[in-house]
Computed example of a mutant assay.
Amino acid sequence: MLSAGVGLFPLGGGSGSVDAGAPAVPGAPAGGRLQTGVDGAGDSYRQGLRGVSALDAATNTAATDGRSAGEQGRGGASGVRDTARTQASAIAPAASSPAGARLMVSTMDERLAAMQQQIDTTKAQNKLLAARLRQVAQAYRATTMSGGGRGMMPGMSMPSFGGGGGGMPGMGGGMPTGLNALSALTRLGGNGQRGMSGVEQQVNGLFGQSGAPDGAAARAIEFAKAQLGKPYALGANGPNAWDCSSLVQKAYAHAGVSLERTTYEQIREGQHVSRGDIRPGDLILQNFSAPGVPEHVALAVSPTMQIEAPKPGGHVQYSPIPNGPIVVKRVA
Results as ranks from 00 to 15, higher is better:
L2F: 01
P322G: 12
S17H: 13
G162D: 13
T186K: 14
A218R: 14
E308I: 14
Q87V: 06
Q125R: 15
T59G: 04
G165D: 04
D109M: 06
A58P: 04
Q35N: 09
V331D: 09
M152Y: 04
T144W: 12
S183E: 10
A4G: 07
Q271L: 00
A28P: 06
G270A: 01
P159G: 02
G79D: 08
A57K: 10
D65S: 12
L8R: 11
A24V: 14
M153Y: 10
N237W: 10
A181C: 13
R132P: 03
P322M: 14
L234P: 01
L34V: 09
S15A: 08
G172T: 09
L185F: 04
G48Y: 01
G5P: 09
G162M: 14
P325Q: 15
L185K: 04
G189C: 01
S53W: 04
Q202R: 15
D19M: 12
R150P: 00
F161A: 10
A251P: 13
G73I: 02
T107K: 01
N204S: 11
K230R: 15
G164L: 14
R46V: 06
Y140R: 06
S44N: 11
P10A: 14
E71W: 09
T262W: 15
P154T: 08
P29F: 03
R150W: 05
Q266C: 07
A77K: 01
G195A: 02
S68H: 04
E110Q: 15
G100K: 10
Q193L: 11
K123Y: 08
I307P: 00
G292K: 03
S44W: 07
S157R: 14
S17N: 09
L185I: 02
G31A: 01
A99N: 08
A184R: 08
